[in-house]
């Protein structure tokens, strides 16, 4: 099993942490994993994407040419990465911000993650909603492991941080 995932959006959407949570969960499940960040010199609002590879054997390149899964959190990212997914690959679109359509032989899952997050009380957790949707479909890592990772990451911060991220993670995965 080798699963290559490209996660893309705007700086500030929590693209890097999505990848980190997934990568950390994969490590906890004793899988091989690499995480590679790419971002411009700008921070909030600029392009941001990361590449995560999860495998049951040693991973060569952390750089991904053609992904098995694309998670697209805004429209510019769709335009940039629409040719970077395999035929029959899996594409998750944040329909709150992705307005263009995607043609091709893909399995496409659309949810308005940013709106879901706003309704839960914090637009910043759209990333966890998308990650939850991904994990529920692909089962690359267990949801329980993802929860364990975010609980651990939220340690030392406000109590409600874990709770709201947990809600987001499970929001569209049931």
């Amino acid at each position: 099993m080798t699963e290559r995932i490209i996660i893309a959006g705007a700086g500030g959407q929590g693209i890097m942490i999505m990848g980190k949570v997934l990568a950390e969960a994969a490590m906890r499940e004793n899988k091989f994993v690499t995480w590679l960040p790419c971002y411009g010199a700008e921070v909030r609002g600029g392009t941001a994407y990361c590449m995560v590879t999860v495998a049951d054997k040693e991973i060569g390149s952390p750089w991904i040419d053609l992904a098995d899964t694309l998670i697209i959190m805004n429209n510019p990212s769709l335009l940039r990465f629409k040719n970077r997914v395999k035929n029959k690959g899996f594409v998750i679109l944040n329909s709150s911000l992705v307005k263009d359509s995607l043609k091709g032989n893909f399995l496409i899952l659309k949810h308005d993650f940013s709106d879901i997050a706003s309704r839960l009380g914090n637009i910043k957790i759209a990333n966890m909603a998308a990650l939850g949707a991904y994990a529920a479909k692909k089962k690359t890592v267990k949801m329980a492991t993802l929860l364990e990772v975010i609980r651990n990451m939220a340690k030392g911060y406000k109590q409600e941080l874990f709770g709201i991220n947990k809600l987001a993670l499970l929001s569209v995965s049931k």
Partner: peptide
């Protein structure tokens, strides 16, 4: 830069 910025266990 790839080695520096990538994460691995």
């Amino acid at each position: 830069g790839m080695l520096g910025q990538m994460m691995e266990p």
